[in-house]
Nucleic acid binder design. Sequence first.
DNA 1: CTTTGATATGAACGTTTGTTCATTTAACAC
DNA 2: GTGTTAAATGAACAAACGTTCATATCAAAG
Lengths: 195, 195
Amino acid sequence: MARKTGSHSEITGPRVRAAALTLFAQHGFAAVSMRQIAREVGVQAGALYLYTKDKQSLLFDLMRTHMDELLAAWADEPKGQSALDALQAFSRFHIRFHLERPEAVFIAYMELRNLTDENFAAIEALRRQYEGELEAILRAGQDAGELDLSDIRLSSMAIIAMLTGVNTWYREGGRLSREAVADRYWDMVRGAVGA
Amino acid sequence: MARKTGSHSEITGPRVRAAALTLFAQHGFAAVSMRQIAREVGVQAGALYLYTKDKQSLLFDLMRTHMDELLAAWADEPKGQSALDALQAFSRFHIRFHLERPEAVFIAYMELRNLTDENFAAIEALRRQYEGELEAILRAGQDAGELDLSDIRLSSMAIIAMLTGVNTWYREGGRLSREAVADRYWDMVRGAVGA
DNA sequence: CTTTGATATGAACGTTTGTTCATTTAACAC
DNA sequence: GTGTTAAATGAACAAACGTTCATATCAAAG
């Protein structure tokens, strides 16, 4: 009983990745079996290997796609004139982007240790690249005298941790809208960098 | 070949927990087998069950112990006079305490989803209690007019995320001492709360 | 109507998993 | 020196794991 109507590679492939994304985020990579993913897709376990080389590649694909989208989205983001404008743009962008895909964010932060050395290096490089974007803004702000920072690398790590932290507590339909949250976090970021 | 010299319950028990702590932090709860833990301790897998009911209890014990120690240590911490003093005390304490036990911190943040519902509720309650400590400080500062906050719960989550983030990048023997890091983070926290 | 090729099945593989238990060992009390 | 008992062994269990593969199915092309 194969090849039901509408069951093509272009349909099943994305469904496999979507199921893996949700299950990995919920239970963790190591705790999720290929059979669980298959059941979620409505297929036998063996069929998954038409869409992924192995379980490790499935995880890596999800993480690399997420990081690629993150960098591409930030590249497309308008950044304003001053360094302070750019910092505000970054803060709001980071919160918005991360709140839009909590599962991918969760995986990207929690499953690094389940990557092979090679795959880990690739993801780590992309993360560094993203951190570098913020550091460049802070450096520009420092040089222009708009910001008062004693350590750019440290400040960038602190800001990213603070912003990403929103994902741990924000719930849709809660007390605050996304915009309200972004407003308040921007206030805090601005205060933290002495501007 | 049992009961080698010095192999008593009081020795092996802690060694089991220490091995589990290190291995869980390194590879994740689900990816570590009881046999791996046993090998690290120098014992057969069956012997572990003299010291823990099952694998789940081993994880729960580590997390509850960590949270208990966190709350007890903060209770013992001198907090100064003003709310601003207390906020500074909290910031420095949080960084110091967390940098002293990176493995336990890692587990406490990453393995929540591997707890049973009941165990999760217990740990979550302790975490809420700790967050409540910071919220109380912020509220006091707000009431005394020392701080300028638009949302206490949000500010407390932002501060904790920022402070805990130190664990993700700080390396012993690096560019900055723990004290220097704590100094700079306190500056940022102070700025973030508008003081 | 036949052929083709992509899509899926389902059984099988060798390992590994968490946990239990009858048995053995050795340190200590008498 | 004997008996007691806590501490550890090592074999065993059924279940689940990731992955492979011969086979079946069915949509579309000629």
